[in-house]
């Protein structure tokens, strides 16, 4: 414990990233547990090759498991969904930790953690705002999709790209805006409303500049996930050998850490101006609007 504290004092930001990634990973295991328990009850462990069979090419036993276990798996999925919602709310803590660690000047090593705990309720509210607005965008996209895809002739690709692109852009803009609000809400004396107002101001002033950085960081995240998917495919977990599972586990944990690190880079981008490294929100911006 003492050693951990020492490491944490020396590398508080790295520790914050690792801790946030660990929290996210642990949440994943919590969400997965009911489904795994249901699969175990279905006798998947007694299959000749155990759960390797579920990853085997052709998916014969995967489809069979879904068919035979439809009812227990559906019940387990509902429990997992509830766990997912609770864990999604709990993600406010690691998110707050990353924001507090990377947006605040590195002074007292314990400050980000204390601040993160205090920020969690606000971040839950902002996370809900993010999810709600993105869900709305998604629903609108779903509603527009049939019209876009029913177009004949050469217009179809353009219309579909327009719908997908519009939905992605809107979602990205919403996420950027909410992150700006998260950043603004770090200041203890601001209300949530003031934070949102400041985010709106920041979005208008720096939106385009931040958008480029957002595309860059999200692209890096997407590449990490895609590369891991390809790597996992190459690892062939349907084949015998526990080492394969270990390698895939390590790969996936590395992705979660990388994604958290990318989030930290993004927070740094939010909290700095282009080159000056000044803390944002700029002093006085609240009074400007």
């Amino acid at each position: 414990m003492t050693r951990f504290v020492a490491i944490f004092r020396r590398f508080p930001r790295t520790t914050a990233v690792l801790l946030a990634a660990a929290l996210r990973s642990a949440s994943g295991w919590v969400v997965a547990f009911p489904l795994v328990a249901a699969l175990s009850a279905l006798g998947v462990g007694s299959l000749p090759s155990g759960d390797r069979a579920l990853f085997a090419p052709s998916g014969l036993l995967l489809v069979e498991t879904l068919r035979v276990g439809e009812l227990p798996l559906r019940a387990a999925a509902q429990t997992s969904l509830l766990s997912w919602v609770l864990c999604a709310l709990a993600q406010a803590l690691p998110t707050a930790l990353v924001f507090a660690a990377f947006a605040l000047p590195p002074t007292d090593p314990g400050a980000p953690f204390r601040r993160a705990l205090a920020l969690t309720p606000r971040f839950i509210a902002l996370g809900a705002l993010d999810c709600g607005l993105c869900a709305l965008t998604f629903v609108l996209g779903i509603l527009l999709w049939p019209a876009a895809t029913s177009a004949s002739g050469d217009a179809q690709f353009g219309l579909a790209a327009l719908v997908i692109g519009w939905a992605l852009l809107l979602s990205a803009a919403i996420s950027m805006f909410v992150d700006l609000a998260r950043l603004a809400s770090i200041e203890p004396d601001k209300t949530l409303r003031q934070a949102v107002d400041e985010a709106a101001l920041g979005f208008r002033r720096r939106g385009l500049r931040l958008a480029a950085r957002y595309v860059l960081t999200s692209g890096a995240g997407a590449l990490c996930v895609a590369a891991a998917a390809r790597g996992t495919e190459l690892c062939r977990v349907d084949a015998a050998g526990e080492l394969r599972v270990l390698v895939v586990f390590a790969l996936h944990q590395a992705v979660l850490i990388a994604l958290t690190g990318i989030q930290a880079v993004w927070v740094r981008a939010l909290s700095n101006t282009d080159a000056g490294g000044r803390y944002w929100p700029l002093p006085g911006t609240a009074a400007e609007h």
Binding site: G28, W29, L35, V36, G50, L54, F55, V248, F249
Partner: peptide, 15 residues
Amino acid sequence: RSLTRIEERLAYIAA
């Protein structure tokens, strides 16, 4: 057998 493969995969996707 234990279900480490499917457990690991589901947990990762959930995360």
